[in-house]
Amino acid sequence: MFKDVTLGQYFPGDSVIHRMDPRAKIIASILYIIAVFCARNIISFAALAASALLLILISRISMMTVLRGLKPILFILVFTALINIFLTRSTEEAPLWQANIPVFSWNWQPSIYREGILRAIFTALRVIVLIIGTSIFLTYTTSPITLTDAIEELLSPLKLLHVPVHDFAMMMTIALRFIPTLIEETEKIMNAQKARGADFSNGSLVQRAKALLPVLIPLFVSAFKRAGDLAIAMECRCYRGGEGRTKLHKLEYHFSDFLILFLVVAFMAGIFVINHYNPMGIGI
């Protein structure tokens, strides 16, 4: 049941994006997110869509994988699209469609405006591009461990303010490291309880929630036990936080990192410029 979720998964590879420095990737995806939210008209949205396609091609992640990664957000997409279509009101133009539905004494007038449809399409596109962009730059092409390394490096200035950056990074690493383990364990326990006649898919909501207890209790017990074991194992290897710790794999910027960052900045600037140039008058 968890196997179909590709969002947030790492796919090892050797593309230009895979080889980027993880810090550069984080910065690039932040800039990319800003660009995505600044797009305002049809040309800049077209540029966004093109850039997302380009990113997929460069990273050599298969299109199917990326599309499957979008499945979990399908509900959000449809939901926001419907809200946008039905709740957007424009004062400047007449509605494309309007109905009169009497609800008790009040007359409900659902109406659809041209602007609402545009908003729906653009918002959906924005979310899709946002997800594709960030997952290509970060999760799909960066292993969780390098990612937390990069976060630690980027946040290291906060150490001056006595923020325990290293400890946070270590916590994140451990949490990420144990997600697959916990998923595997959940499946194992579910199977064991199914073998004893547990039924997770039928019955009322309350019944189904109750049926999960025999899974959650052993899962928590083993997670706590695992945490204790891990703490002991770390202490056995003299772990005592970040002070004086050196790294085997030091992060280093390369020329290509600066080049890609430059391209992303140029793209962002391009979006800003296009926003002011709207030949077709289609935009939000």
Partner: peptide
């Protein structure tokens, strides 16, 4: 589920499947 009652499966390291308050309740699950 009826098949699963007829073909009982004990998985590898089955200790992790214990969850109930007492052993008696757990065996009776």
């Amino acid at each position: 589920r009826k098949i699963r009652y007829r073909v009982g499966l004990v998985m590898q390291y089955p200790e992790y499947q214990l969850f109930d308050e007492t052993v008696r309740l757990d065996i009776g699950y």
